[in-house]
């Protein structure tokens, strides 16, 4: 036995320190400061304890609407990413190595460009007189030009494209661990292609789908560039509102309160979700 084994936690603790310090400085410290600010008056000296920021958020229907929209959009975006991403990931695991590489590169490629540039791309496609409108008109589906700009549908389309890679990549991790013999066994036992996927592949991919959808949900709750550019001022989301309070109205106290409400409600949704999915995924 080496001398180091007498203190089994010492070496792991050393390895953990840089990450822990970074998290402390970059997340917990600002989060606690925001928490404090949300309960303090802003601009008075000295700052006093107050609930006025939360009262304002509760009373103003506008912010309730922003909150509901934010969560509704995040759920729709997550659901669509699951619906599109899972079959895509299944196909990627089943094709030959050459095609698989091509598909993975195609999935990752959008991540190499800035979100701003990708979103401007969507503006060109979704906007009035854009490619989408023009194509539908040429096909005779619609008779006058449409625009998905400043609509929730437009936000969802642009966001799904931005976030799909996260879901596909995490799901690929799970799918890669399923031995091919399980799917073959299911087929020989009479399952057929689609039922094999439903009864074998899908349940075994739950861990990847769970972490992927959590990632997508968290990212879409907190995103503000794409919703702000596509949705405009009328269709505000929480992150956009907070940004505006902090940088436009300079109402830091109210911005902090909105941040706390967003953080808390996100946790209220995510924690039960994690518990349920880990229970399903943990059965194997």
């Amino acid at each position: 036995m080496s001398a180091g084994s007498a203190q089994p936690y010492r070496e792991p603790a050393i390895l953990l320190t840089p990450g822990l310090l970074f998290l402390l400085l970059a997340f917990f410290f600002p989060a606690l400061q925001l928490l404090a600010q949300s309960f303090l008056t802003f601009g008075t000296e000295p700052a006093r304890f107050t609930l006025e920021h939360y009262a304002k958020a509760a009373v103003d229907d506008f912010y309730a609407g922003v909150g509901v929209r934010t969560f509704r959009l995040a759920m729709i975006i997550t659901a669509l990413c699951l619906l599109i991403g899972f079959p895509l990931a299944v196909i990627i695991t089943r094709v030959g190595p050459a095609l698989r590489t091509v598909l993975i590169v195609l999935i990752i490629l959008p991540l190499m460009t800035s979100v701003v540039i990708r979103t401007f791309g969507w503006l060109v496609i979704l906007g009035p007189g854009g490619v989408l409108s023009w194509t539908l008109q040429q096909l005779g589906v619609i008779d006058r030009g449409i625009s998905l700009m400043h609509t929730e549908a437009g936000i969802v389309i642009a966001m799904v494209q931005v976030l799909l890679p996260f879901l596909v990549l995490t799901t690929l991790g799970s799918l890669g661990q399923i031995p091919p013999s399980l799917e073959e066994a299911a087929r020989v036992m009479g399952a057929g292609f689609f039922r094999g996927i439903f009864h074998v592949t899908l349940p075994l991919a739950v861990p990847g789908l769970a972490s992927g959808s959590l990632l997508v949900f968290a990212l879409s709750i907190s995103s503000f560039i794409t919703p702000t550019l596509v949705g405009g001022v009328r269709l505000q989301v929480m992150a956009g509102s907070i940004y505006q309070q902090m940088t436009g109205s300079f109402d830091w106290g109210f911005g902090a309160a909105l941040s706390m409400i967003l953080l808390l409600s996100t946790l209220l949704l995510i924690v039960p979700y994690m518990v349920i999915t880990s229970r399903i995924g943990g059965r194997k």
Binding site: S181, L182, A185, A186, V188, R283, K284
Partner: peptide, 20 residues
Amino acid sequence: LAPEHRNIALMFQSYALLPH
């Protein structure tokens, strides 16, 4: 015919039991 229509059984070397 696809495997699911052959009415056969195959026991894999790895057993291929469904873990879930």
